[in-house]
Design a protein around this nucleic acid. Structure first.
Lengths: 183, 183, 183, 183
DNA sequence: GATGAATGAGTGTTCATTCAT
DNA sequence: TATGAATGAACACTCATTCAT
C-alpha cells in the first residue's frame, strides 16, 4: 500500500519515463502532450500537476535523466594502479554502453532545438574528464606526451558518433590505434 | 528575361533555400509552412505548386542539398602523387569547411526524425571514402598497416562532432595524433 | 474552542469573503474556483463541501451579501420630524457610502451575466423606497408636487453611475439642484 | 459579384456583428471564440485572419462600434436658435434611443473587465458635452445659473441607468424636474 | 503563377468537478 | 474536515492544406 507521497513520486517518474520514450521516438517538437499522456496511460491534464509546461518537462528530463553524473562516476574512479590502456579500453566500453542504454536520451538531446547548449556541455564535460585522465598518465610517464585534449575529443567523438549513427565502434581497435606504441 | 521554365526552376530553388534556412533555425517540426513561405517572400499556398506537402519538401531538401556529392569529389580527387599525411590534413580541413558551410543542413539532418537513415548513410559514406584512401596508402606501403576502418571512423567522427558541438578541431594535431610515426 | 457548527459557519463565510474579493477583481467568468480557494487558503475540493458548484456560489453570494437589506434600513428609518432636504442629503450620502463599501459586490453584479435581474431589482427597490419618501413629503406639503418617481430615479441613478464610473457626486449640489425652491 | 477586398471587408463586419451579439449575450469572458465563429457561420480559425486574438477582437469592437462619435454629433449640432428646454428634451430622447440601439454594446462595456476605462471615458465625455451645452445656455441667460456639471451628470446618469436596468425614463418629466422654472 | 480566404484537425493548457484517502 | 490526485471537456490558438479567384 503506497503512501500518497510515494504514489506521487512514482507517477512523476512514470511520466518522465513516458516522455523520454515518446520524445525519443517522435522528437521533442513532434511529440504532443497527448502522446505522452497516452503513453503513460493518463489524461493530458494530469501532466500539468507534475510539470508546469511541456517545455518544463523537457528541461526536467534533460536535467534529471542526463547521464553526466554517471559519466563522472565512471571517469573519476580510482584506477591509478592499473595500466592506462586497460583502463581506457574499459572506460570507452563503459561509455559506449552508457550511450547505448540512453539512446532515447541521446535522441532527445539531438532533437531538442533549444537544448544544444546542454548537448555541448555534456560533450565538453566528457572530453574534459577523459583529457584529465590522459594528462595524468602522461605526467606519470606512462603515456607518451601528446596532445591529450585532441586525443580526448577524438575518443569521445568516435564513440558518440558510432552510437548516433548506429554503427558500433570496436573500442579495442580504437585504443590500439590511438596508442600504438604501448603494445 | 526568364523563360517560364527558368522562372519556375528559380522559384523552386528559392523555396528550398528558404526552407533550409528556416528548418535549420527552428527544426523541421518547429518550423511552419507559413514561416518558410514568409522567408521566401511568398504565400504558403504557392509552396504547394512546387511541393506536394511539407514532408515532401523536407525529403527533397535532404535529397537535393545533401553534400555527399561534394564530399565524394573531395575524396576521389587524384592525389596519389602527394604524401598521405599532407593529403589527409588537407582533406579533413576541407571536410571541416564543408560541414561549416552546411551547418544548416547538418541541423536539419539532426532535427528530422525520419532522416536518421539519411544521416547514417552520409556518415558511413564519408567513412568509407576516407577508409578507402587510407587502405590504398597502406597497400602502397606509405602508411603502417592498421585498422583503416576504425581510423576513418575516428577522423570523420572527431571533425563532425567538433562541428556539431561548436568546438572546432585542430586538424593538424588530429592527423599527427593518429599517424605519429609518419613524421 | 469552536463547536463543529461554528467552525463550519466560519469557513462558509470565509469562502464567501474570498469569492467576493476574487470575483470583484477578475469578474465571475474570469475567476477560477482555484483562484477562490487559494484566496481562502484552502483546496478547491473543499469548496464543494460548502457549495454545490461555482454557479451556486455566485448565487449564494448575490443573495446573502446583497445590500438591499441595509438600504431598506437606511430608507425606512423614522425621520418624519426632520426637514426633507436634510434627510435627503444624508440619505444619498449614506447610499453613496453603501455603494463605496460594496464596490466589490457592485462589480460582481455588473459582471455576472445572469445577475441582471438581481441588479434591476436592487435598483428599482431603491428607487421605490426613495420615491415613497418623496411622495410622503409632498403629501405633507413639505415638497412641491412633482414627479416623485422620476426624481427618485434621478437621485439614485446619479449616485450609482458616479460610483460605477469612479467620479464621485457632490450630493449636496445634487439635492440643491433637484429641489431649488426649498432654499 | 463582390471583389476580394469587398468580401474581406464584409466578413470583418460580419464577425464584429457576431461578436457583438454573442458578447452581449454571454459576457466577454463567458463567450468562447467558437461561439462567435458559430454565430457567424464560420470556423474559429478564420477569426484569426481578421483579428490577432480574442482580446484584439474585443478592443476593435469597443473602438469601432463605440457610439461616442454619434453622441458627439448629436450634442454639437448647431441649435443655438432653439429654446434650451426643447433642445434638451430632444437631446436626451436621442441619447436614450442611442443607448437602446446599442444595448448589446452597453452590455459588453459593462461586462468587459478591462474595459472600465473605456466606459468611464464614454460617460465623462457625454457628461462634458451636456455640461458645455448647459453652460452656454446659462451664459446666454437662458437658463438660471446653477451647477451645470452636476446637472449634466444627473441627466446622463438617469438616462443611462434607466436603459441599463430596463426601466425607461420619461425624458420630458426629467427635464421638467431639473428645470422647473423654465416653464 | 500567385494569392489569400477558408477549413478541420490539431496544439498546449486550464478548469470545474469528483472521490479515495 | 480537508486534501490532492485524477478526469474530461473545454479553451484560445496554430497549422498544413485546398481552392476559387
Amino acid at each position: 500500500m503506497k503512501t500518497r507521497r510515494e504514489q506521487a513520486e512514482w507517477r512523476r517518474e512514470q511520466l518522465l519515463d513516458a516522455a523520454l520514450r515518446v520524445f525519443a521516438g517522435k522528437g521533442v517538437d513532434g511529440a504532443s502532450v497527448k502522446d505522452i499522456a497516452q503513453a503513460a496511460g493518463v489524461t493530458p491534464g494530469l501532466l500539468y500537476r507534475y510539470f508546469d509546461s511541456k517545455e518544463a518537462l523537457v528541461e526536467t528530463l534533460l536535467a534529471e535523466r542526463g547521464f553526466l553524473p554517471r559519466l563522472r562516476e565512471l571517469l573519476t574512479a580510482d584506477n591509478r594502479a592499473r595500466p592506462a590502456v586497460e583502463v581506457l579500453t574499459e572506460l570507452l566500453g563503459a561509455f559506449d554502453g552508457l550511450l547505448a542504454d540512453n539512446a532515447d536520451l541521446m535522441a532527445v538531446f539531438f532533437s531538442a532545438t533549444q537544448a544544444r547548449a546542454a548537448l555541448a556541455d555534456l560533450v565538453s564535460e566528457g572530453q574534459r574528464l577523459i583529457g584529465d585522465f590522459l594528462a595524468a598518465r602522461v605526467a606519470a610517464g606512462e603515456l607518451r606526451p601528446h596532445d591529450t585534449a585532441t586525443a580526448a575529443k577524438t575518443l569521445f567523438a568516435t564513440v558518440a558518433v558510432g552510437r548516433r549513427t548506429g554503427s558500433a565502434v570496436d573500442v579495442a581497435h580504437l585504443v590500439e590505434l590511438l596508442f600504438p606504441c604501448e603494445r
